[in-house]
């Protein structure tokens, strides 16, 4: 387990600094449209191998979220949404993947999903994360529609990034 985390530590750092230093203040959007942001860091949780204990995932999610919060000066918002994302991860597995794929991944040191499973998994997890994040940011359901639109756009663009990231990492 320790070995796995050691192997992933540089990815955490990379994703964290990509999020904070590169995409930190980036807020995209057209005139009159709800803006969206690129959320890179959830990938650190999403790419963790299934073998990693789910409790540990929760703690990693909380800590990473908190570190991102420090950067954005939004204490708790990223932490809460990333903790929830980490919490839901095992349930999304059993929802999207068949037993054979889960068993196969349980023995792997990294995520090894079929492309279709990967897309569904990433899109769903990202969408959950973004929606929770925007709702927590608003802290009210009054602008749920806006939060939903922002989540959808953020999910799409974050997913594109995740896909590129996967190509780069896999090609290594």
């Amino acid at each position: 387990m320790k070995g796995i985390l050691g192997k992933y530590l540089w990815q955490f750092l990379l994703l964290y600094f990509l999020q904070t230093l590169v995409f930190g203040r980036l807020e995209l959007g057209l005139d009159g449209m709800p803006s969206f942001i690129l959320l890179i860091y959830p990938l650190a949780i999403l790419i963790l191998p299934m073998r990693v204990a789910k409790e540990l995932c929760l703690v990693i999610g909380f800590v990473l979220g908190f570190l991102v919060d420090l950067w954005y000066q939004t204490p708790g918002v990223h932490a809460a949404s990333l903790t929830l994302t980490a919490f839901l991860r095992p349930y999304v597995y059993s929802l999207l993947l068949d037993d054979a794929e889960i068993r196969h991944n349980m023995n792997m040191d990294r995520m090894d999903l079929k492309l279709s499973s990967y897309i569904a998994y990433m899109l769903l997890m990202y969408f959950i994360h973004c929606l929770v994040f925007f709702l927590l940011q608003d802290f009210t359901f009054e602008r749920f529609g806006v939060a939903l639109v922002r989540s959808i756009f953020s999910t799409i663009f974050s997913f594109i990034f995740a896909f590129i990231y996967r190509l780069i990492i896999l090609s290594r």
């Binding site: 929760l58 703690v59 908190f66 204490p75 708790g76 918002v77 932490a79 903790t83």
Partner: peptide
């Protein structure tokens, strides 16, 4: 963890 995060958010 969520309780901690939410109390952070609120405070």
């Amino acid at each position: 963890l969520e309780a901690i995060a939410l109390s952070l958010i609120i405070n």
